[in-house]
Design a protein around this nucleic acid. Structure first.
Length: 541
RNA sequence: GCCCCGAUAGCUCAAUUGGAUAGAGCAACGCUCUUCUAAAGCGUAGGCUACAGGUUCGAUUCCUGUUCGGGGUACCA
């Protein structure tokens, strides 16, 4: 609705021979300002050197008979143009929604375009924690939003199965294995102390028996990383998340991609040797410090495979690449980007999303999370506690720029403080009304006089319903699913308010039929939104 | 020191990316079920948007400082 108006105004400006400035068409906060409002005139004032009010008058006059189902246009100081639509404008959407169902207002803007979304990518050193959960749900929901827009989405997990952390993991399992064989427990400095390490050691013993195999660390690493991979994959699956591609860091070594990057950078003179290490001249590309790519031990730092991996991403030809990282990664991306540019690769289609951390509180006390020390709460535990719907909704209901407070005590309550129940309750109510109507003998409400729907609560509800596409567009450009949760909450509120004032099924059959169509239509929109969030739509509660 | 995020009602957060009188939920206090689900609705109260400047018709939003939180600043990932 807003986008259509924007175009109409642009046409109008062209007609008047004025250059189109940056302006907005938006939904005003106050009902007295109409259903849509624009600041065009204000933005034109300087260019035309005229009073904004006069400009607004001119535009309003020009637009008046070009827009269908318009009640009136108002020009208000200091120069806003407010649009008031007639009830008919809103009523006509009902048959459209009921006909198109899940396809209602689909933009199709991503048709034929490929997107890769990389998310989670946690080291396979332990079960996913509550911290990882935020990224998991964010990534999957963003993917779902893009899929709604018809993008072809590849969900990818970069699997760090090489490097120092994996060696620590192998050593930790080895230590537990030896303990099982009766030796004294000796977890290495910086090793992993979680219970799950014991389970893995037991699994190893079951498969390999009692070996004298302390030299064969690789065997332990491989076994452990695979075991943890299974754990992580299953956790995500329980949350309704499945990655299309697990990209192994190891493969970058096997296929020689690491070497290629080093060679390519050296060839262009972007690296140098110092203190036995290979350095990347990151400062040449505006980064604050030069970075080590290969340590004096001959082992690469994590940056090198990161660079190689991103080089592969670009080569794979996606139209859009989205990286989702925790805020602790903010320092590393500029280096990767610099290196890619150093290899003359285009990085303009990469979007890096950084989300802030999850703070876990329990009875008001902060709980410190660490995989290594094993004093974390796992994502599995959280799901068991509050259910997947609540987990999915809570993780994205806040902007990713702000810290997320997860109060465990509150989450366990499953009480009325929970917005998820508010939305699901609205959906269940809608279903119940439709069921009730047939019980009351209304066989069909296909033929109805929709002009009967003109009370303020109903117009407000309809107005909110058709806002859906505007919201989905904001989600697409901002990549912030939070806008969708906020919207659905408003939609449910508009419905609950309507419900409390107007009874749907009454003695007045004609009116009942019209309102039944309305309820059916809201239900479709609400379900569309909840489906995108992968939150269930119960018919009864 | 430098870099990234945040600071809005007692608490948790919004504010359509610069718009008009800053809004919700929870907590507090009142109402509303003989009705399609009260997991709901209505009302009251709650604000110098951390602080000080600047930019312009207009700032919670952009810029510059300051204060306080979180994260980073490795030849750890």
């Amino acid at each position: 609705m807003l986008q259509a108006l924007q175009k109409e105004i642009q046409n109008c400006l062209a007609q008047l021979g004025w250059e189109s400035p940056q302006f907005v068409v938006e939904r005003p906060r106050k009902n007295t300002f109409g259903h849509a409002s624009s600041n065009v005139a204000l933005t034109l004032a300087k260019q035309l050197k005229r009073r904004p009010l006069d400009i607004a008058q001119d535009i309003a006059k020009e637009l008046e008979d070009k827009i269908n189902d318009l009640d009136k246009i108002e020009v208000v100081a200091p120069g806003f143009i407010n649009f008031f639509f007639s009830p008919l404008y809103f009523q006509t959407f009902i048959p459209k929604i009921r006909k198109e169902k899940a396809a209602f207002q689909k933009s199709g803007i991503g048709k034929g375009k490929t997107v890769q979304v990389e998310f989670v990518s946690a080291n396979p050193t332990g079960p996913l924690t509550i911290g990882h959960g935020r990224q998991a749900v964010l990534g999957d929901t963003i993917s779902r939003i893009l899929e709604w827009h018809d993008y072809d989405v590849t969900r990818e997990y970069y699997f760090n199965d090489a490097g120092r952390q994996m060696r620590m993991l192998g050593l930790s399992v080895l230590a537990r294995y030896k303990e099982l064989l009766g030796e004294e427990l000796n977890i290495p400095e910086g090793g992993y102390e979680g219970e799950y390490i014991i389970d893995i050691a037991q699994g190893f013993r079951k498969e390999h028996g009692d070996l004298k195999c302390e030299d064969d660390l690789e065997l332990f690493i491989e076994f452990a990383s695979h075991a943890i991979f299974i754990i992580i994959r299953d956790t995500l699956k329980r949350l309704g998340i499945e990655h299309d591609v697990y990209y192994n860091e190891k493969d970058l070594y096997k296929t020689g991609k690491i070497k290629e990057v080093l060679e390519q950078l050296a060839e262009k003179g972007h690296t140098y040797e110092e203190d036995g290490a290979t350095w990347f001249k990151a400062t040449k590309f505006g980064t604050e410090k030069d970075r080590v790519l290969v340590k004096d031990t001959g082992e690469p730092t994590y940056r090198l495979p990161d660079i190689a991996y991103h080089r592969e991403k670009i080569k794979r030809g996606f139209d859009l690449i989205i990286d989702i990282f925790g805020s602790d990664h903010h320092a590393t991306y500029p280096d990767v980007k610099s290196a890619l540019e150093a290899m003359d690769l285009d990085t303009s289609h990469i979007r890096v999303l950084l989300h802030q951390f999850v703070t876990l509180t329990r009875d008001g006390e902060k709980v410190k999370m660490s995989t290594r020390k094993a004093n974390f709460v796992t994502l599995d535990e959280l799901m068991a506690l509050v259910g997947t719907d609540v987990v999915r909704y809570f993780y994205i209901m806040r902007s990713m720029d702000s810290h997320l407070n997860f109060d465990l005590a509150l989450a366990q309550k499953q009480s009325d403080e929970n917005p998820v129940f508010y939305l699901q309750y609205a959906h269940a109510r809608m279903c119940n009304i439709l069921i009730h109507s047939s019980e009351k003998g209304i066989e069909s409400y296909e033929k109805a006089d929709l002009t009967l729907l003109n009370e303020p609560e109903i117009i407000k509800l309809l107005e909110t319903m058709i806002e859906f596409s505007d919201i989905m567009d904001i989600c697409r450009t901002s990549l912030e699913p939070m806008h969708l949760t906020n919207y659905l909450y408003r939609l449910a509120t508009a419905f609950h308010k309507f419900y409390s004032v107007h009874r749907v099924v009454t003695e007045n059959i004609e009116l009942s039929k019209a309102r039944l169509q309305l309820v059916d239509a809201v239900k479709i929109i609400l379900a569309n939104g909840l489906n995108i969030l992968a939150v269930k739509t119960p018919e009864r509660m």
